Simulated scan of single mutants.
Amino acid sequence: MTESGPWPTGLKLKKAERILEVSFDDGAHFRLPAELLRVESPSAEVQGHGPSQKKTVPGKANVAIVALEPVGNYAVRIVFGDGHDTGLYTWDTLYRLGRDSDKLWTDYLTALERQGLSRE
């Protein structure tokens, strides 16, 4: 376990399913869809520079993960099929995305609807 949270024990890309599987040393195991990872990217392009600047990213229903690039021993850069590759997904970020995925997904769908945007 890191000082800030659980440590990853497995990272597996299932390209055909567009899923990233992540396992942690506390027994947690998450299946993270590429679409969720893309629309919740920790990049400034998506998150802005504060909670009030977060952008709702439409049209990512079929986005793929084309590569995973390790960043030191603390993160992974995910390269998406739409060219986005600027977010560094720390282990804590991946854990949070897995733990909170249901709420994040619901919030995303609500934001799309409210803004008249589509996943397609």
Rank of each mutant, 00 (worst) to 15 (best):
E17N: 13
D26K: 03
A75C: 13
T86Y: 06
E40Q: 13
N62Q: 11
E69Q: 14
S4Y: 07
L104W: 00
D85I: 10
E120Q: 11
R31L: 14
Y74T: 13
V57I: 05
K14H: 15
G50S: 13
M1K: 06
D26T: 03
A44T: 06
S41G: 05
G83R: 09
G5S: 01
G116P: 07
D92N: 07
T2N: 10
K103D: 08
E17H: 08
A67K: 06
G48T: 08
Q47N: 03
G48A: 09
S23N: 13
L37M: 10
L11W: 09
I78M: 02
L117T: 12
F24V: 01
T93A: 09
P70D: 13
G83N: 04
D85L: 12
Y89P: 01
T56C: 06
K103Q: 13
T93S: 08
V79K: 06
D25E: 11
L104R: 07
V39C: 07
V46F: 08
L117A: 12
I65W: 04
V63H: 00
A64H: 06
P70S: 14
R99V: 06
D100Y: 11
G72F: 05
V79Y: 09
G5P: 00
S4H: 09
V76D: 05
R96C: 10
L112V: 04
R99W: 08
L32K: 01
G116V: 05
P51V: 15
L109C: 15
Q53M: 02
S101I: 05
L88I: 07
V76S: 02
A28R: 05
Y95H: 05
H84D: 06
T56N: 03
R119H: 03
A34Y: 02
L109G: 15
K15M: 01
P6D: 02
P8D: 01
S52Q: 15
A34H: 03
D85Q: 14
D100Q: 11
V46I: 11
Y74M: 12
Q47P: 04
D100M: 10
L97Y: 08
S43I: 11
A28V: 00
L68C: 10
H29K: 15
Y74H: 14
V71H: 15
D25W: 06
E40T: 11
D25I: 03
V22N: 02
Q53W: 03
G98D: 02
D107H: 13
V57Y: 00
L32T: 04
E40V: 09
T106D: 07
A64N: 08
K14R: 15
P70R: 14
L109M: 15
L88C: 09
L94M: 01
L20E: 03
R114E: 08
G72Q: 07
L68Y: 00
L109Q: 15
A64C: 10
E17D: 15
T56M: 08
P70Y: 13
E69C: 06
P8V: 03
W91L: 01
K103V: 07
S52F: 12
L97T: 04
V39T: 05
A44W: 06
R38A: 01
